[in-house]
Design a binder for these strands. Structure first.
Lengths: 229, 229
DNA sequence: ATTACTTAGTGTAAAAAATACACGTTATAT
DNA sequence: ATATAACGTGTATTTTTTACACTAAGTAAT
């Protein structure tokens, strides 16, 4: 057994997989890199962890610097540690995901010159990505496919007030299959975590649907009980 | 925005949470440390990743060095990255778990002087652990509680041939609750991934139970279908 | 105002799965 | 022979899942 004494010569990076929903398409937040390596390539928002911050804190900072977004709760899902995943040295990347409602309000403005721009890009229509980011993204998609069956991720993608058809669209997009409308409604209402509002949808051609809100209070009370799609 | 250029000054470590089942108790594999910091403390088998190995490879190597165990498939489940989790510098730890059948065959012999010894210790009766290892272990337990509902982890804990009562014990131990015998059997047999053998249990006082094998072939065919406890 | 269009919203019957529940059987040990 | 302790089994009830199609309501165009 050869004993190589390992030193403190690794870098640790964060990569953020942000899913967004604009009412019809599932999107991912990408940046266009302004630095080598992979200058001018599209990439997940990501950068190196600083020594005086935890990886969770780092994820928040990096997301903000590269996209301008702050206070986004992200969940860690995997650490990528292949030897040659970064051309400039040994970098372990810790990946996070989050779900985000889109709708213009949140500005996308990189604060760091590290990114030329940040942009929501349709998952179904992705460019070639830097590093192993396609792989990181694929693994993120797998994770949320599993987790959306048990966790209320869908409501993080939706605006505060939403219609049941919108909820169904999110599930269909993420799971990649069509669901029966009546059965879907029966099931999602059976969890009793949606509050029906007096209000109706506005600004649509054709019949307006009833709006609902996600009731976090009631959801938290469910804890322990499994919900399942 | 202060730009600190981060250097390659992190270390990355692996910690292994190995669950073992001896027929009645759920155990964890711990080592007694022979090095500072936390010399003489109990700890999860863990050490630093070398620069020329992936984190997955590293997990295999480290497990072998500290416990003598090789060819154990481990699954990564979380990266721990608090700033002060290691007293001697900035160390990010990537945690892995595995499930293991116990039964004396596998020798526990640290090959490295880093560990004085390795030992299976009852989960219900743990000593104080080094670093944040208690936290890492707790998170590992949570993970397997969730995953055993959908993945055939139980059979990794059991000998090749096992009785249905043993399978039930494993589920009860990990889930932390009693299950109904007839319903459990009905359900687990309904997945059709257990092969009933001609053979019966031997060396027990009282009536011997029929032995079963896990049929990996059939299990792999199930893929896509969710199995669920 | 009529019409055409599009999405909203609803119920039921059948099948499948989950649950609750108790006793005769069988191998061993004395 | 008997006592022991775990083995192995079935049914009725409830709950959940699935499959399936039409009317209602609002908008837009003529």
């Amino acid at each position: 057994m050869t004993e190589i004494t390992p030193g403190f010569d690794f870098a640790v990076s964060i990569d953020c997989v942000l899913f967004g929903f604009d009412g019809s398409e599932l999107k991912i937040l990408l940046i266009e890199r302004n630095e080598e390596p992979f200058k001018d390539w599209w990439a997940l928002p990501g950068n190196l962890v600083n020594k005086e911050e935890s990886v969770d804190q780092s994820a928040q900072r990096i997301l903000k610097e590269l996209t301008g977004l702050s206070d986004i709760y992200m969940e860690q899902y995997y650490a990528f540690g292949e030897v040659n995943r970064h051309p400039q040295g040994r970098v372990i990347s810790v990946a996070y995901y989050a779900m985000l409602r889109l709708g213009g309000e949140k500005p996308l403005k990189p604060l760091s010159s590290y990114a030329k721009k940040a942009q929501w890009i349709n998952v179904a229509d992705l460019p070639k990505l830097a590093f192993d980011h396609q792989h990181i993204l694929n693994k993120g998609l797998e994770k949320i496919k599993r987790r959306i069956k048990h966790l209320p991720l869908a409501f993080e993608l939706l605006p505060e007030k939403f219609t049941l058809t919108q909820v169904q669209s999110v599930y269909e997009l993420i799971l990649g299959k069509k669901l029966d409308k009546r059965n879907f409604r029966k099931k999602i209402l059976s969890f009793k975590v949606l509050k029906e509002l007096e209000e109706k949808q506005r600004g649509v051609s054709f019949r307006a649907a009833t709006l609902y809100k996600f009731d976090k209070r009631k959801y938290n009370k469910l804890f322990g009980k499994e919900i399942s799609f």
